[in-house]
Design a protein around this nucleic acid. Structure first.
Lengths: 119, 119
DNA sequence: GTTATAGGTAACCTTTTAGTTACTTATGGA
DNA sequence: TCCATAAGTAACTAAAAGGTTACCTATAAC
């Protein structure tokens, strides 16, 4: 997943209407936009634009069938982010613990700025 | 963490310059903006605006000391999101597996749209 | 006390977001 | 066939994002 795709996914999540829309689609696979319309206070076109953002981010899949367009949540992008960022934080905590260990093992270990930030 | 705060955090992450800035701050606790400037091709003011977005989201902490302003990564918002969304996907997968189970157990279990989407 | 440096404000510009109304298209059903 | 309905396009507006240059403030260092 490249930087551009990350931009799209995070941007898609950075709006509460879109998060609600995504939640509803995940909860009701195969539903259509007009079925979800009642849950929102914005116009249908506004909602359709939000949907387009989710589609661009790959968070929702759509397949037109007749005059309807059933929608499906695609968890893959979020799983990828979840994994990658999870690893990153694990690394961060590991390195911070090393720093803390080093700080504590100093002869003079008054509470430094760094350890204050940690404890 | 309310919807407004989620907006701020996701928005902050929806830009590759800001993600880089955040990574650098996490890697070098206590660094200052001007120290990181060399890693970017945008102006100092542009970079400062990105930093402000990270501060607003609570992803970075700053404490002015003299004429410098050391920066620290704050992992808490990301951990909260990581946990909450992780749980959400676990639930999603669980419910999808239930649907799949139901679909497979039908007398006529030709591959439906839903199961095609899953397998 | 000057000067170099880290940081901060103000004003401006361009592009994108988020929303609207009005109109068009396609399809399922009476 | 006619009509209701699901979806899509076009055009417009207001606000926010992302960036710039120019100028101001405070402090460390000589």
């Amino acid at each position: 997943m490249n930087e551009q795709q990350l931009d799209l996914v995070f941007l898609a999540l950075a709006n509460s209407s879109r998060r609600l829309l995504l939640d509803l689609i995940a909860a009701r696979p195969g539903c259509t936009l007009s079925q979800l319309q009642a849950e929102f206070s914005i116009s249908r076109i506004g909602l359709m634009k939000h949907l387009q953002v989710l589609l661009d981010a790959g968070l929702v899949m759509a397949q037109k069938q007749g005059r309807e367009r059933p929608l499906y949540f695609n968890p893959v992008p979020l799983q990828q982010i979840h994994q990658r960022w999870g690893d990153q934080y694990r690394d961060f905590w590991a390195s911070q613990l090393l720093r803390l260990k080093a700080a504590v093992e100093q002869p003079d270990h008054t509470t430094t700025e760094l350890t204050k930030d940690l404890l």
